[in-house]
Computed example of a mutant assay.
Amino acid sequence: MTYILKTSHLTKTFQGKDVVQDVSMKLTQGEIYGFLGPNGAGKTTVMKMITNLIKPTGGEIELFGEKLSEDSFQVLKRIGSIIEYPFFYERLTAQDNLDLHCEYMGFYDKKAVKDALELVNLQNLGKKPVKDFSLGMKQRLGIARAVITKPDLLILDEPINGLDPVGIKEMRDLFKMLSQQFGITLLVSSHILGEIEQIADTIGVIRSGRLVEEVAMSSIRDMNTEYIELTTSDSRKAAYVLESKLNILNYKVVNEQLIRIYSDGMSRGELAKGLVNENVDIESLTIKKNSLEDYFMELVQGGEGVA
Rank of each mutant, 00 (worst) to 15 (best):
Y108F: 14
E158S: 10
I155F: 10
R140Q: 00
K111F: 07
R145D: 13
T93M: 04
E195D: 00
I155E: 04
L153I: 13
I184C: 12
M137A: 04
L186T: 02
L135M: 09
F87K: 14
A144D: 09
K169Q: 15
P165D: 10
D173S: 04
V188Y: 06
F107C: 02
L174E: 10
Q180G: 01
I192S: 04
D99S: 05
Q180V: 04
K131C: 12
L187G: 03
V120N: 10
D109N: 15
D157I: 13
V166T: 11
E118P: 04
G126I: 05
A112M: 12
L122V: 13
G136F: 00
V130L: 11
L178H: 08
I160S: 10
V120D: 03
C102Q: 06
L92C: 09
S134F: 07
Y85F: 08
V147M: 11
A112W: 12
L98D: 12
Q180F: 04
L92E: 11
G126N: 07
K110H: 07
G142D: 09
D132C: 10
E118Y: 10
D157R: 14
Q123T: 09
L154W: 08
L100D: 04
Q139D: 00
Q95E: 14
D96R: 14
D152E: 15
E158I: 13
G126S: 07
V147P: 09
M137Y: 05
D99Y: 09
T149F: 08
L141M: 12
L156V: 09
E197K: 01
K128F: 05
R91I: 05
V130A: 13
L135N: 08
E90K: 11
V147D: 11
K114T: 15
D109L: 03
L141V: 05
G194R: 09
E170C: 00
F87T: 12
C102S: 07
D99C: 04
D173G: 02
P151G: 02
K110M: 00
G136P: 09
R140I: 00
E158G: 15
L174I: 03
G162V: 13
I168Q: 09
R91K: 14
K114Y: 07
R145C: 05
L163R: 01
P86W: 00
L153H: 11
N124Q: 12
L156F: 05
G194W: 02
L122H: 15
Y104R: 02
S134D: 12
G167C: 12
F182S: 04
V147S: 14
F87M: 13
H101D: 08
A116K: 14
E90M: 14
M105N: 03
L153D: 08
K127A: 07
C102M: 01
L100N: 00
V120H: 05
K111N: 14
P151T: 06
L117Q: 11
G167D: 14
P165C: 13
E90C: 08
D152W: 01
I168T: 02
M171E: 06
D115I: 09
A94L: 11
L135T: 08
P86A: 01
